[in-house]
């Protein structure tokens, strides 16, 4: 009986590992929050979802942002592209400014500069909206 349970556990582990290997990008991150790096903790802006697709061998990313406040928020963002080994690839991007009006949903999107990019991080910075990091 115990042997059967162990075997089932092992099988379960194998299935999970296989699913992680096949999944690629999504396997490395369970949620959108894992892809976002904030400079401070933003109170009013939140990343609701991130869509990832590989087109013509380039990674395309689109993030869905929501301003939960009624006030207009200034946001700066940039993408960091990583290869299979987790190293950054491509030149460092400049910060891009975006204005997100009160209760507005905003899409930000980017295309990886090189085909080697298989993963990414979105750096977000909202100077008037930052609380203390938790």
């Amino acid at each position: 009986m115990k042997r059967t349970t162990n075997f089932r556990r092992l099988l379960g582990c194998l299935v999970v590992t296989a699913a992680a290997l096949v999944g690629g990008v999504d396997a490395q991150a369970a949620s959108a929050a894992d892809k976002v790096e904030q400079l401070g903790q933003m109170r009013s802006l939140e990343v609701q979802s991130i869509r990832i697709v590989r087109r013509n061998d380039f990674l395309n990313v689109q993030a869905d942002l929501l301003n939960t406040d009624r006030q207009t928020q200034q946001l700066f963002y940039r993408f960091k592209w990583l290869d299979n080994a987790g190293f950054t690839v491509g030149a460092e991007e400049g910060w891009k400014p975006v204005i997100v009006y009160g209760n507005q949903k905003k899409l930000i999107e980017a295309v990886a500069p090189v085909q080697a990019a298989t993963d990414f991080r979105i750096e977000l910075h909202s100077p008037d909206n930052n609380g203390r990091p938790q």
Binding site: G23, D34, K35, Q48, S49, I50, R51, V53, R54, R55
Partner: peptide
């Protein structure tokens, strides 16, 4: 077809 990954 394209494989789209959606993270939430």
């Amino acid at each position: 077809e394209e494989e789209v990954i959606i993270l939430r």
